[in-house]
Amino acid sequence: MKIRYKGIKRVYIGLIFIFMYAPIALLIIQSFNKSKSRGRWGGFTFEWYGSLFTDASIIEAFTNTILLALLSSVISVILGTMACICISKMKKKARNIMMGITNIPMLNADIVTGVSFMLLFLTLRIQFGFGTILLAHITFNIPYVILSVMPSYRDLNPHIYEAALDLGASPVYAFIKTVLPEIMPAILSGGLMAFTMSIDDFIITHFTAGAGVHTLSTKIYSEVKLGIKPEMYALSAMIFITVLILLILVNRVQGSARKEDA
């Protein structure tokens, strides 16, 4: 009875895993498919991994995507961490209002957030392009940073910072030496979350991109009807495998560090 229950458990977890990864496996297989049509296997090839680098439009979309993710996560980390310091010092009512507003982009539907940006930029007659996408990405990224950093910042012992001041440190020096190291893990995980959300976003980018500028997401969406170029599969497979390897390595390093601690 016990063994059978354990078996059912394993099979169930396995099935969910397959459900999540089947499309990804298929896309990776597709990136090696010589035939350009989706349904047919035309033999194994590395061709798309080569021609990818000569396709200017894909490279440009890739650069835009990475640049947006980098800039928006760095800027939202800076603004968000500064905001945490301020919000945690606010009176309860003001703090609740600020946290309520911070929650709006997370609770709101992406399509409503997207159209609200579109209306703002249209009304102010701001030229749609890289800048408008960046503004939008920073806005939906800041909440991830604040929600990650805030609990860690409020858990700090304020007396350590005050002690540093009493001992003659300048506020900035005291902050860098006493506060920053404590909240660094939260800042990094908030920043990583922001980076991931920016990379994966399509809907908000769709409404704020305008004509000329493409990210990988908007480019894929525009190609869907005509058929997605195989180079796109190759690029996505490369990104995915790279991140997977990095994560496994980080896990290994952390795992062995933990073992040494013990």
Partner: peptide
């Protein structure tokens, strides 16, 4: 993380599109 976050590194439009092939 493997189950929930890692798949996000494959573009979600592509992942959804892949269901067409299935």
């Amino acid at each position: 993380t493997m189950l929930l976050i890692v798949p996000m590194w494959m573009n979600f439009l592509l992942r959804t599109y892949a269901w067409q092939s299935i």
